[in-house]
Design a protein around this nucleic acid. Structure first.
Lengths: 156, 156
DNA sequence: TCAGTTACTATGAATTTAGTAGTAAGTCAC
DNA sequence: GTGACTTACTACTAAATTCATAGTAACTGA
């Protein structure tokens, strides 16, 4: 147990949260810290290499190693060898990692509304040229999340 | 500077992240940890009191005090006195806090897809009775986030 | 060959988090 | 009106994590 990154208590937290019935908690077990989220953001922006992440985030290399390993183990990133000599790996998004983009945009949309002053990075649809304005809706009803009453059903 | 919760280095991180042009980073400065997110989840589930959060999350009271204070200061929760004697406060969602729900649902949707086995908590539309299936779309084009090319524009 | 690059690991200090116990100001039962 | 209980915390210490700096290994390019 805990053979790889055993000295991080996060693993214990992860175990607790990972087994909860709440899917939010389960997800947070994997990406419930700012570094992981920012690494995912940068991965979506096209960064793949250790030093690219390190310079972009100004993160300590120990932290970066731990986070990249965790995200790789959890299936959001994939280690890909791009040079055999010297042995060099890059980290690319998996399908699960690419599917994380809506979460980042939802967070960004909240930030634009409530922390939006000053200079901000903006995102545009490459086809239409319009600025992207993310809304999270229920696919079934089309209603934005939060505009209708919700019934919560616990398992068991 | 840092008069209120000065002994937490998170404040320093917050300052760094809060001034970044990236709105994702700015948001993560406030809620970029699992406890804050889970407190927000529980607040949306109707919890308001210190001990309700403490029991639900099994969080150390010191942590809970710190997180509730931070979320209150950041405008996601509001402290409301519900008893003068003894003095008792509860924490209720502000508009900014309520608007955070889409983020939680986006995270939950990702979790359902990639960590969805076993017993899970589910959410239904109270009107239609259908299970909520959150999708984050661009309000302008209607396209789900991640299905189209994005152009990033940095400030300045 | 010698500086530079890339991807890390080692190490120790600083900071944060956790856990237990305790406190303050009550209420409630009898 | 006394003792048990509740609620919302704070104090304190120990444990764990995070950070920063330095160092290493295996190259490249001039």
């Amino acid at each position: 147990m805990n053979l790889v990154v055993s000295h991080y208590q996060k693993d214990i937290d992860m175990k607790n949260l990972s087994n909860q019935p709440c899917l939010i908690a389960r997800s947070l077990a994997l990406v419930g810290d700012a570094w992981s989220m920012l690494i995912m953001r940068d991965a979506h922006a096209g960064l793949t290499r250790f030093d690219e992440f390190r310079k972009s985030l100004e993160i300590a290399p120990t932290m970066l190693t731990a986070r990249l390993s965790a995200l790789t183990e959890d299936g959001l990133l994939e280690k890909r060898r791009y040079s055999d000599r010297p042995p060099r790996d890059e980290y690319v998004l998996t399908e699960a990692g690419r599917d994380f983009l809506p979460v980042l945009f939802a967070i960004g949309a909240w930030g634009r509304k409530y922390r939006g002053g000053g200079d901000v990075t903006r995102f545009f649809d490459a086809q239409t040229g319009t600025e992207i304005d993310p809304v999270t809706i229920d696919r079934e009803t089309g209603a934005p999340v939060g505009t209708r009453a919700i019934r919560t059903v616990l398992p068991g």
